[in-house]
Nucleic acid binder design. Structure first.
Lengths: 152, 152
DNA sequence: ACTGAAATTTTTAGAAG
DNA sequence: CTTCTAAAAATTTCAGT
């Protein structure tokens, strides 16, 4: 499995702009990367088809949408012989924003977002029930920065 | 410190749609939430001004942009008396996508993205040098899911 | 706060160099 | 890749309810 063809500098420039402003118009984009609108349009379509550009998402303020509490939850299976279908067992819980399979003492790290400590407690109960795992939780106190554009 | 006014159902619907498809047109948005285009436009503007909507970002494929290696790095200060300016000391490193201040044994958790193990090694060196901390690194093997829309 | 309409800009596709 | 063309669609503003 390769990581795909290396990206051209122009494509990288386009991705950088769209990572910062996903709603940037083709007109602005063209100006910023120094290409015609048609050319940019063509390139963005190609990047979408190749799967390099996987979509666009709004950045929401966790506090203002009523989900002020973020936490990381590390999972350790109780039964080492159990089939590894933890992600499938957990994806029905919308509070889980991300699920990473990791090397180390624990098997998975989840990033979750809830409305309150009570909500976190309830979520932990659901996770243990759904996946038969022990959990270790690290509460986020503040987020100095997040969602920075990758160094494409 | 409040978490802001509770959101109206219509605003929540708009945010849900934009979280999934950040480039959704106002026309489509209006149809999906059952309002006129003008009304939706007005509400989106207001959500942006209130800071609930903090922007829009392209979702990029880490592998295809040449950054196939993700890791979590936990930081522990060497000097407990040192001023807590770690985020400022680290923000110049573009490989760091997110920085969380956390409760627990460690002080910060970073989510980073690099091109290779060598890149990770180099980044760890830079982090220790910039922030005078000890590090604990957890390498991500795979990402079953990420960037799921929050349960607004 | 929403609707509907009008004016402007953008998107999208295609032709030709 | 560029420029040009042109129709369709989206954005944006504004008067009216």
């Amino acid at each position: 499995m390769s990581t795909g063809n290396p990206l051209e500098p122009t494509d990288r420039a386009i991705l950088r702009e769209l990572a910062v402003d996903g709603r940037c118009s083709f007109t602005d984009l063209a100006e910023r990367v120094g290409l015609s609108v048609s050319a940019v349009h063509q390139r963005v379509r190609r990047l979408e088809q190749r799967g390099v550009l996987r979509g666009y998402a709004a950045r929401l303020d966790g506090e203002q949408i009523g989900l002020p509490l973020t936490a990381f939850i590390s999972l350790t299976p109780f039964d080492p012989a159990a089939p590894d279908d933890y992600p499938q067992r957990l994806e029905h819980l919308p509070q889980i924003e991300a699920c990473y399979s990791v090397a180390g003492d624990e098997s998975y790290i989840l990033r979750v977002r809830v409305s309150s400590p009570a909500g976190l407690e309830e979520l932990l109960r659901q996770i243990r029930e759904s996946a038969n795992v022990s959990t270790r939780t690290t509460v986020v106190l503040s987020t100095p920065f997040e969602d920075r554009p990758p160094a494409v």
